[in-house]
Computed example of a mutant assay.
Amino acid sequence: MSRIGKLPIEIPTTVDVNVTNDNVVVKGKFGTLERTLPELIQVEQTDGRLIVGLRNQTRDSKALHGLYRTLINNMIVGVSEQFLITLELKGVGYRANVQAKSLVLNLGYSHPVNIDIPDGIQVEVVQNTTLNIKACDKEQLGLFAAKIRSWRSPEPYKGKGILYKGEKVLRKAGKSGKK
Rank of each mutant, 00 (worst) to 15 (best):
S102V: 10
V17D: 04
K168H: 04
G91H: 09
L84G: 00
I41A: 02
I76C: 07
W151P: 00
E34Y: 01
N114Q: 14
I9Y: 04
D119A: 14
S110M: 10
L67A: 09
D137I: 04
T130E: 13
G31M: 03
N74L: 10
I148N: 04
Q82D: 04
Y94T: 08
G120K: 12
L33N: 05
Y109Q: 14
N106M: 14
V92E: 15
A63P: 00
G5V: 00
S150P: 03
L131A: 12
C136G: 12
S153Y: 11
R55H: 11
V17K: 06
N74P: 04
T70L: 14
I11W: 07
L50R: 06
V19M: 09
E167C: 00
K101E: 11
V17G: 06
L87A: 12
V126E: 14
E124L: 15
V24N: 04
K175S: 10
F30L: 12
I117D: 14
D60R: 15
G66A: 13
I41H: 02
I162H: 02
D47Q: 09
T58P: 00
G177C: 05
I4R: 00
G142R: 11
N21G: 15
Q42L: 04
E44H: 11
F30W: 14
R149W: 08
D137V: 05
P118F: 11
N132F: 12
L107N: 10
S153I: 08
K160I: 09
D137G: 02
S80I: 04
Y68R: 01
F144P: 03
Q140W: 02
R49G: 05
T70D: 13
K138F: 10
T86C: 10
I4S: 00
I9P: 02
P8E: 07
I4N: 00
E39M: 06
D47F: 05
K179V: 06
R3Q: 07
H65G: 07
T129A: 12
N18F: 10
E39K: 15
N23I: 02
P154S: 05
T70E: 14
